[in-house]
């Protein structure tokens, strides 16, 4: 357990300075246009700050394996919630599977508008506004 493990004050101050540094970094990086990379980078910085706080300030580094599993389970379930919900929204625009398997030949050029005959049906559940 995290009993009676005393961390030197210096370590806490170093961690604190690292956190401040990361905060300034994320603020500055947000001002630079990295296209699609902006969000992942901001997320990465926030994640690393969280890791620092959890491992050092919350003594997870010296805690038992059980505590690590409890904390990790929260993260895993959060990812589950995100994965399936965002998964639904992301696949809403996909066209429905091209018909029952045996008779219906899969449309060769799904999006080729030159010969509309082969265009498969519009998606069953249209994208909401």
């Amino acid at each position: 357990m995290s009993t009676n493990h005393v961390v030197p004050a210096k370590t806490y101050v170093y961690i604190f300075l690292a956190l401040i540094g990361l905060t300034l970094a994320t603020t500055e990086i947000a001002k630079v246009d990295l296209g699609w990379a902006n969000t992942p980078v901001a997320f990465l910085i926030a994640g690393s700050k969280t890791l620092l706080v959890v491992l050092f300030f919350m003594h997870m580094k010296w805690s038992s394996y059980k505590m690590k599993v409890v904390a990790a389970s929260g993260l895993v379930w959060l990812v589950l919630l995100f994965a399936f919900t965002v998964g639904d929204y992301a696949t809403r625009d996909w066209i429905a599977v091209p018909g029952p398997w045996p008779q219906h030949p899969p449309a060769s050029a799904a999006f080729d508008s030159s010969h509309p005959a082969s265009v498969p049906s519009p998606p069953v559940a249209e994208h909401q506004p």
């Binding site: 625009d93 066209i95 999006f111 519009p122 998606p123 249209e126 994208h127 909401q128 506004p129």
Partner: peptide, 12 residues
């Protein structure tokens, strides 16, 4: 992005 011009796209 490339979007499929279905009924929802026109409405939106």
């Amino acid at each position: 992005r490339t979007v499929f011009a279905g009924e929802a796209y026109i409405r939106e």
